[in-house]
Simulated scan of single mutants.
Amino acid sequence: MSHIPHLDGITCRMVETPRGRFHLLERGPADGEPVVFVHGNVSSATFWEELMLALPPTYRAVAYDQRGYGESERLPVDATRGLRDFSDDLSALVDTLDLDTFHLIGHSMGGGVAMQYTIEHPERVRTLTVVCPVSPYGYGGTKGLEGERIWPDGAGSGAGVANPEFVQRLAAGDRSTESPASPRNVLRTFYGKAPFIHPREEALLDAMLSTAVGPDHYPGDSTPSAHWPGVAPGTRGINNTMAPIYCNLSGIVAITPKPPLLWVRGADDQIVSDASMFDIGYLGKLGLVPGWPGEDVYPPQPMVSQTRAVFQRYAEQGGRFREVVIEDAGHSPYLERPDEFQAAWFAWLDES
């Protein structure tokens, strides 16, 4: 279990809920306007600390380690429920904390969790902010703006396409720079626009290395497939929750009421992108995965374009939506370009 050092002004505690024990970071008055932060994959609540401290003092910031991350309980993940294990955890947590309504912000996979929660509890969400979120159609294995599944079994998505060396080094607690697949180098190269060397790099690396690794956690299990690239999602673990056979968040278009929706992304994001360095279709196109069947069969997933299409329909059906693109930033614009990010987000909170 990791014990990550926190910035001055951040308090931490464990909270027991009906769904498990979760580690909580907080800042601000107990009666402040609540903001709940949901972190992404292979990270923890500590990624939010600078942004929590920057919030105006009238807000109460609440960030938590999701199951299997940070100091929260190492609960298994049923991927066949999509992201619902995580969104149900969030529901139990906010109920335990007696948060009736609140602002909700999620990053990457956490953006998907925030969308899933909002689909199920739209009346609880004052505003929804998603930062470089997973596509509403999941991660990998789809094509076109409507998220058409390429293969029936979702081949090319889920745990089986995670970099095995990265998984091994993560499990071993590797802090080195000896391989491009070391967690530190992945942080520097992909979590932000390279070279992304954050002043709190050691704490961010601690957060990454706190991830529970295995078939029930990160990345999950996999199954052989007759379709390229020869591997399909299993039924357990984190990466499989975002496979298109289990994950579809496009139902957010139809919810009532519709919270104001802000989408912030880095212009140079290499993780969630229409040309993602983690998408098997794009890697195949680059010749990095053998046997690629071609763009007509397995094109790169247009992740950003899919997200925009869904959010535009959200607006057409009565929601308020804004897309903000932060230049010279990658997958973590709130850490890379804090001034630009905070200006956009705080203005949105004020308007809403």
Rank of each mutant, 00 (worst) to 15 (best):
R67D: 10
V94L: 11
P122W: 09
Y117V: 00
M109W: 10
L104R: 04
D65A: 08
Y64S: 08
R60H: 13
A114F: 09
L128A: 05
L99F: 06
I105H: 01
G112W: 02
L90H: 05
Q66K: 10
G110N: 01
D95L: 10
G70A: 01
V113Q: 02
D89Q: 15
G111E: 02
R124W: 12
T101V: 09
L75G: 07
M115F: 10
D95V: 02
L83Y: 01
Q116R: 12
L97K: 06
G70W: 00
P122Y: 09
S108I: 07
M109P: 09
S72V: 14
D100Y: 10
V77D: 00
G70V: 11
Q116Y: 01
R81S: 02
G111T: 04
R124D: 12
A92C: 13
L83P: 04
R81H: 06
Y117M: 03
M109L: 12
G112E: 05
S91P: 00
L104G: 04
S108V: 01
F102M: 07
A61V: 06
F86S: 00
V125A: 06
L83Q: 11
L90S: 05
L93V: 05
D85F: 03
R81Q: 14
M115K: 02
Y117H: 04
R74I: 12
L99K: 05
D95Q: 14
D98N: 15
A63H: 08
S108R: 01
D95S: 14
R124M: 11
G110V: 00
H121F: 06
G111W: 02
Y117A: 00
F86W: 11
D65Q: 11
V130I: 15
I105N: 01
T101E: 15
T118Y: 03
R124E: 07
E123A: 15
V130K: 07
I105K: 03
L83S: 08
S87I: 02
R126T: 14
T80N: 08
G112M: 04
G110C: 07
Y59T: 04
D98A: 15
T80I: 08
Q116M: 13
G106C: 01
E120V: 05
L90E: 03
R124V: 08
T129A: 11
V94G: 10
L90R: 08
S91A: 15
H121W: 09
R60A: 03
R84P: 00
R126C: 06
R67A: 03
Y64K: 01
G82D: 03
E73K: 10
R60D: 09
R84I: 10
V62C: 09
D98L: 11
S91W: 13
I119A: 03
G68M: 10
T101D: 15
A63K: 03
D88S: 13
Q66C: 11
